[in-house]
Design a protein around this nucleic acid. Sequence first.
DNA 1: CCTATAGATGGTAATTATTACCATATAATA
DNA 2: TATTATATGGTAATAATTACCATCTATAGG
Lengths: 149, 149
Amino acid sequence: MRVDNAIVEKRVNDFIKRSKELGIKITPQRVAIYRELANTDEHPSAEAIYKKIKNYYPNISLTTIYRTLETFEKLGLVSVVNILYNAARYDANLEPHHHMVCVECKKVEDFYDESLSKLDFSQKTLSRYKVLGYTVQLNGICKDCQSKS
Amino acid sequence: MRVDNAIVEKRVNDFIKRSKELGIKITPQRVAIYRELANTDEHPSAEAIYKKIKNYYPNISLTTIYRTLETFEKLGLVSVVNILYNAARYDANLEPHHHMVCVECKKVEDFYDESLSKLDFSQKTLSRYKVLGYTVQLNGICKDCQSKS
DNA sequence: CCTATAGATGGTAATTATTACCATATAATA
DNA sequence: TATTATATGGTAATAATTACCATCTATAGG
């Protein structure tokens, strides 16, 4: 529980208010799942959330976790850090370049942008990791998917 | 086959030379897999590569595709676009922020960097996608994993 | 060019992450 | 408090990935 308690409570209250506005039911499971996400900055998986909640809510179902996270995501209450989690995607192009990901069809297109080739990270950032590289991931909707909808 | 043929052939030749240097065997399967990756910029999954190769190499095994891609990746011959493909990872923090990913333990830590908050993308880039947002993903090795190895 | 063998492949089974289904339970509304 | 649309739990199905093992082959050495 790294996130400050006051912040967590604020987030949970906002979540409840927002849920009412959106017209979805506020169940103990949903609050538990949201709270678990709000009080960490570790970007947990469904499984990780499940394990934590199981400690104090032993008969919660893993299916509920998955379904709830999907619901939250669709409503914009939480976000998926890794859109491309479905399957590993490979690239033979080892030159530094960046990616545009279509959030609909999961297509990945390369883009090159001089101004992104040497971003400055703060010393504080650099001190925390042995940096191997970085990419800018641009999320959006591709031409094809734009014309479909 | 969007990538220019001459470039593909150069990549394949480099791949063969590099494989010899690395002391791994050059099998028709490996060449096929590498070539399939070298001649596209679509960042295919193992399954997608399998389907393509199956057309002209009908008894290749899906296991071989997975194993080979893993081998290539470990040797630095190809790269995985999406390190975090293992499982969906969620975040309740909807403020724009960036991620440091540990390539060893798959931990994701947030970082904030003023200079990254308003990157300029070229008009060419912006014309291709309806941009929803972007994140900078910094790949590296976290403190914990550094001390382990 | 042949041979031996370490390393690679193919096929199948096991594991892990996710989704589908359906009977039951419950939050929210009147 | 009763009604009902929605949510949950449990189990089964699917998809992606990995493990295992018997067989095959690229390659180094004669």
